[in-house]
């Protein structure tokens, strides 16, 4: 790694100098009588990791699903700084949405069954992403699947095992490989380590951290685990009952929480 790259990778979040990669404004969503999101706005800057915390049912996963265009809100605007897609992404048709999600956004779900084809091979799961993007050479598929699995620190001698035969940590690594195979501009992580034991959790977080450092990848990570957020995030957004109650730099939130709810959350943890 050259010095120039190194300094780029270690640069602090460029809150002041660069325009945000992701801008979400005024997103509201209600499911029947349940209000999942009330007027939520969020910005994510290139190369930054945004952590979203909150109790169960606070709307953090719904927000992430919106970011992955899996659901359309009742109101709201969502833009990514992509030259070919300048408008509100919620206005895209099904076809454009699918292409965008497949090629520009990667997602890792808490439940691997949502993100993986359990009966196909692990390398095939990664290859599927590349196939959607139009890759039709077997050698290239094989090579790029191997690269992506290697980058997510998956043991390559098991690359043709089916995810259902793998451990939870391995399944998350396959999901991660699938998510980064096309070098997306945005990586969404929905409780990526929940349900893993502490040592495996540390290893997966380690991989994520390394990826973030090496590729300066922009991430949004949702978790109810403050430890995970503290390890990963540059900036933190605290959600409660579908609203953002507080946001700021990670250290600021953890050292000096302002909102009552955040104070409770931080103290409960410590």
């Amino acid at each position: 790694m050259t010095l120039a790259q190194h300094s780029l990778a270690l640069r602090a979040p460029q809150l002041m100098t660069t325009p945000p990669l992701l801008t979400m404004t005024g997103v509201s969503r209600r499911y029947g009588d349940v209000v999942a999101l009330r007027d939520v706005s969020a910005t994510v800057y290139p190369g930054e990791v945004l952590g979203i915390v909150g109790e169960s049912g606070s709307g953090k996963s719904t927000l992430l699903r919106m970011m992955n265009l899996e659901d359309t809100p009742d109101a709201g605007d969502y833009r990514l700084a992509l030259p070919d897609l300048p408008g509100n992404l919620f206005d895209l048709d099904r076809f454009a949405r699918r292409m965008l999600c497949a090629t520009r956004i990667g997602i890792v779900y808490q439940n691997p069954h949502l993100g993986l084809l359990m009966k196909h091979t692990s390398s095939g799961n990664v290859a599927e992403r590349l196939l959607i993007a139009g890759e039709r050479s077997f050698a290239a598929l094989r090579g790029r699947a191997r690269e992506a699995l290697d980058a997510s620190e998956f043991p390559l001698d098991r690359m043709d095992a089916r995810p259902i035969e793998l451990s939870g940590g391995m399944q998350q690594r396959v999901q991660l490989a699938k998510a980064i195979a096309l070098e997306p501009v945005l990586l969404l992580l929905d409780e990526p380590t929940t349900g893993l034991d502490v040592s495996v959790q540390a290893l997966v977080l380690d991989t994520l951290k390394r990826l973030q450092r090496d590729r300066a990848i922009t991430m949004v990570i949702v978790s109810h685990d403050l430890g995970v957020i503290r390890t990963m995030a540059d900036r933190v957004m605290v959600m409660r009952r579908g609203r953002v109650v507080e946001q700021g730099l990670a250290d600021q939130i953890f050292q000096d929480p302002q909102h009552d709810y955040t104070q409770q959350l931080v103290h409960a943890k410590l």
Partner: peptide, 12 residues
């Protein structure tokens, strides 16, 4: 795209 996945896995 996914149809090629069947062929991919057969070759693998």
């Amino acid at each position: 795209g996914r149809l090629w996945l069947i062929l991919y896995e057969q070759i693998v």
